[in-house]
Lab assay of single mutants.
Amino acid sequence: MASQGTKRSYEQMETDGERQNATEIRASVGKMIGGIGRFYIQMCTELKLSDYEGRLIQNSLTIERMVLSAFDERRNKYLEEHPSAGKDPKKTGGPIYRRVNGKWMRELILYDKEEIRRIWRQANNGDDATAGLTHMMIWHSNLNDATYQRTRALVRTGMDPRMCSLMQGSTLPRRSGAAGAAVKGVGTMVMELVRMIKRGINDRNFWRGENGRKTRIAYERMCNILKGKFQTAAQKAMMDQVRESRNPGNAEFEDLTFLARSALILRGSVAHKSCLPACVYGPAVASGYDFEREGYSLVGIDPFRLLQNSQVYSLIRPNENPAHKSQLVWMACHSAAFEDLRVLSFIKGTKVLPRGKLSTRGVQIASNENMETMESSTLELRSRYWAIRTRSGGNTNQQRASAGQISIQPTFSVQRNLPFDRTTIMAAFNGNTEGRTSDMRTEIIRMMESARPEDVSFQGRGVFELSDEKAASPIVPSFDMSNEGSYFFGDNAEEYDN
């Protein structure tokens, strides 16, 4: 783990906690998980779902989305002020799938948001429990990260689609708070800032007046979040320049895209947490497990152990491969979309394939898809080993990566060399080191050039047997250095459309 220093740990961010010791953190995270579980059980009762239907990941996603929508204050306010045809701002819903006479049927349900809020609060001892809501947002974000390569979004903001390893959390809503900021990748933060800068260039009043003052505060806050992700002084200094700019424009845009590229080699610290679907927490609570009393951590053995003992089902389209669908969801559960496939294969105990080789589309089923041909199958979400999630980018030494994705962002704290394609990355730096950030740029390029592919990161860190909950005997895996390590390699994943 990167030293926490003055930073709060993510469990504290996750639970809005002030400084807590490890036991208190485990208890408050457990409380959050228990609340999600209780809410899910109650919703299944309301909807009269069978046990099997309640364990269907598509039903879980609909129920999670309903509660997130019920608590989305800004959108609710907007919907009330701008009524649109056929949208009731006070209601929320989605597809629920039921097994009827041996076939899967889709039923569109509609609930009062007020009623959903009441059920959620009741499951969370009367609190709004925003930490639990954020947790579900991060699960949705991790699922998107594993399912889609955001080529269009990258290109629109002047970045290269091969930089997708920097895009963790790119679909997280803005209201996801400190826990959300911690899991956002460098590219995601750059993209958010670039969008602001572009608006400022096109709209003279963007930075002016009372609204402009708020915009400015948001801009500086985002700059500080991004600065905190960088691990070298030169990158941090460049972020200070971007933040202090009187009138952010093209120079800042250039600096930010430069920094994003540099992060492929001088990786930023991005938190990883295993956020599971509500249909995993519900049955665990129903079986009598007391998360608050037992304590829970999002970055240790607990999620692995929970998945070892969970039964989750998914709808499967006619030509999809259930094992591939399982891999997709497994990666999402562990926030591992940008991790090295060699490491993932070792931990999972079966070969993890790149996205383009998977015969599976996303987990969600569109409303126009034919239910007649839908089957369902068990998702295999178990693992051979477990490993500690990392909050750091690993040290800054790398190795060759593949054509589709030119770097990785480690999820697990496991000893290995970190793949990246130096030639491709360095070719993108057209040696432009003039301007006010020239000395920093020169320094950053120097550090990137001296990074050695064969150097090892996370020295001495290994994986653990599932029986080793105290992480007492690390097993340090050895990897084939020459092997392909990137998930979005030469990829044809669908595009994420909101």
Rank of each mutant, 00 (worst) to 15 (best):
A146S: 14
E494N: 13
E320W: 05
R246E: 00
A263V: 08
D127V: 14
A366G: 15
L259S: 04
G460M: 07
G362Y: 08
L306G: 04
D88W: 03
S165F: 09
S478R: 15
D255I: 03
L61V: 10
P277N: 04
E434L: 04
S482P: 04
Y40W: 10
G93C: 07
E469Y: 07
S141D: 02
P474E: 07
I406Y: 02
A233D: 10
E114S: 13
P474Q: 11
T134F: 00
R55A: 10
A234N: 03
F458E: 01
G126E: 10
D203P: 01
E210W: 07
D302M: 03
A234Y: 11
S407T: 11
K229M: 06
V242R: 02
Q415S: 09
S359A: 07
E192H: 03
T390K: 06
G34M: 07
N101P: 08
N21M: 01
L166R: 01
G300N: 11
F429Y: 15
K348Q: 11
S438L: 01
E192R: 01
Q122C: 15
N319H: 11
N125V: 15
L328D: 00
S310E: 02
A428K: 10
I301C: 06
P283W: 09
T157E: 00
P173Y: 03
V194T: 15
S170T: 12
G349Y: 03
H140E: 08
C44P: 00
D112A: 15
G54A: 14
A27D: 04
N370T: 10
S402Y: 12
K184Y: 08
A401M: 11
M440I: 06
T437K: 12
D51S: 08
F489L: 10
F291H: 03
C333L: 14
R174I: 09
A403D: 08
M447F: 11
A123S: 13
K351Y: 09
N224G: 00
D421F: 08
R8S: 00
M32A: 07
Y281N: 09
A278T: 11
G54T: 02
E46P: 00
P89W: 11
V194M: 15
L328M: 15
S367Y: 11
A233L: 01
R361A: 01
R213H: 04
F304R: 00
T188W: 07
